[in-house]
Structure formats: structure tokens, C-alpha cells
Computed example of a mutant assay.
Amino acid sequence: MQSSIRPGQVWLDTEGKRIQAHGGSIFYQNDTFYWYGENKEKTTPGSGIWHWGVRCYSSKDLYNWKDEGLIIPPVEDDVTSSLHPSSNMDRPHIIYNKETGKYVCWLKIMEKDHTQTLTILTSDQLLGPYTMVRTKYRPLNMSAGDLDLVIAQDGKAYYYFERVHSELICADLTSDYTDVTGYYSTHFPNIHPPYVREAPAHFERNGLQYLVTSGSTGYYPNPSEVSCARTYHGPFDILGNPHVNDSTNTSFRSQISCIFKHPKKKDLYIALADRWITDEAGFIPYEDIRNGFDRMYNPNRTDEPFPTATQRRQPYNAEENTNKADYVWLPFRFEGKMAYLDWKEEWRIEDYE
């Protein structure tokens, strides 16, 4: 039995197996926490497998997690399906629609031509089975990257996503949460990666809407950024990097996928992040990554393209080793509007009011 959270260390389920819920989120209902995410158990070097469906775990204490199995299994017999194991399926997000009684799941899909689309599924139960209602979907006719889904107190829902290599979008969802209405706002315009903001993670506190985003450097980690606004559509004020005393400037070598407000604690907000690269051989200083991605996407650069000679000397493929990615869960500390994340080797839910 586990009695604390230990960021960056191997996390096993109640059967002693490595937890596979990457790019994940937490859903809370009936006094139970459900942690779901990308199942990377078969994503090994040379396998050609990007994912093996969406796996879910349940817990009463956020420490010990029971494997509830695949709530969205891969489609093995159709290579054209967005759920085929070779398909680049990432970052599942599930919200519940009280009007329709449906659980709605949005999946980001990287297509073979490098455009990014969505697959949307619904279910009568959180643990499935899910039925596909949209695939190859381009919201607002945009290439749509990392996302978060948010439900306001009045039931209206919003969709935050990276307009690929451009800016962040906030779009209103239709009443059934399976489409956008057409109304949207734009935020954080940047010229190209690695400066474009992706991986939006939303939370609300004291009447303010917060977004934590990362730069765009693939699986390689980079500094996060906190911003806040008075409305879902902004405008957002950039507050700065939340990661305190992070000498690597890489968000403690992780990327946040979700921010979860503990329902039984007064002010406990938990950042759920993945440490995609765990091998020291695969870790590259952020300055090298930033320069490498700038060379890749900056049309005005004429020097050596990414990867650099230094990076080529490191025999590591991050995408093929995500099956052994670890998790970095940390609690936020607030000073005024600003939200901070301090590194903790170990921490306990019980230490918070």
C-alpha cells in the first residue's frame, strides 16, 4: 500500500504493474477518483505501436490505483482508424453532460500528413463502452493540437486547444459537447515552435480562469507558463513560470496534462504531469532543445537543422520509450494571483486542509 505521492518515481497499480495513464486526467464521482489516459504498455522500440487504447484506474485516496481496464480499446483490424495502435492518439479528455446523460471523450489525433484532428466518442458509463460519433474532425476547420475541456457552473462547456504552430484557441461547445458552435477567441499568438503554447490545462480559483501551458517541443520538456483571466475567453494575463527553483528550466522535466481540484480540500489544486523522458541518456538541456526547434521552424535560420550534432550523439528515441514514462504530481501554492509549483520528493494529501 502506498501512503504518499512521490513525483518522478515509478508508480505501480494495486497489481504491481506500472500505471499506464499518460497525458491523463482525473474524473471524480461517487466518492471515487478515476485516472484515465493513454495506455503505452506496448509502445516499445521498433513496435510501431503508438498507443494501446485508453486505460482507466480507480482509487479512494489518490495513492493506490486499481486497474479498471481499457475503457476505449484500440481498433486492431483497421489501419485507417484513428484508434488503430499505429495512430498517433493523444490526450484523452472526458466530460459529463447532465442534459444528455452522456460521457463525452475527445481524442487528439496526429494524422499521417502531420495535420491534427479529433475523434469524439460518447458513452452511457464512464468506464464505457464508448461509441465513435466523429472522426477526422477539424474544429473551426483548424488543425487542432493539445486540448482541455471545461464545464462552467451553468453547464456551458469550453474547448481550449492549440491551433497547431500558431496560437491557443478557446471555443464554445454545443449543448451536447460533441461540436463547436463557431464562436471562439484567440490567445498567445507566436510565430512558430518552440514558442507556440500547447498542452493547455485549465482550472478556476477565486473567480479567475487559469491556464497553464507549455512550449511546443514534442516529448522534450520545456518551461511552463501560468496565465489568468476573468472570463473563459480572456483576455489572459501572463503571470510567469510556476516551477520554482527549476534549474533545468524544463518544468521539473515534465509536461502538465491536467490540473485537478481536490473535491474535499479547501484549496488543493494538483498538477498532473508526465515525465516522458526518464533515461538520463535522453535528457537534453532546454537551451539545446529551444535552439534546435527554432532551427527547424524558423525560416530565417540557415544554420544546421534540428537535431544538433550534440543530440545525434545520444542514441535515444523519446517516442519509442514512452511506455516507461513516469508521473510528476505536485500541489500548487498560491501567492496572490500567482500559482507556484515547488519540487517535493514526497507529499501527502492529508497535509492539506
Rank of each mutant, 00 (worst) to 15 (best):
I5T: 04
I5Y: 00
Q9K: 13
T14C: 13
Q20R: 03
Q20Y: 05
Q29I: 11
D31G: 13
W35Y: 10
P45L: 06
G46I: 05
S47W: 02
C56D: 01
C56M: 13
K66E: 09
D67E: 01
D77S: 12
M89V: 12
K102R: 07
Y103E: 00
L107Q: 05
I120Y: 02
T122H: 04
L127N: 07
P129I: 06
V133M: 09
L140I: 12
A144T: 12
G145P: 00
V150D: 01
I151F: 09
Y158W: 03
Y159M: 12
Y160P: 04
F161M: 10
E162S: 11
E167T: 11
L168K: 04
D176E: 02
Y177H: 04
A201S: 13
Q209N: 14
S214V: 07
Y220W: 08
S227P: 03
I238G: 09
T248Y: 08
Q255M: 10
F260E: 00
K261N: 06
K265Y: 02
Y269W: 06
L272T: 05
I277E: 00
F283D: 14
Y286W: 09
N291Q: 15
Y297A: 12
P307K: 03
T310M: 15
T310C: 15
R313Q: 10
N323K: 01
K324I: 15
F332L: 15
Y352R: 01
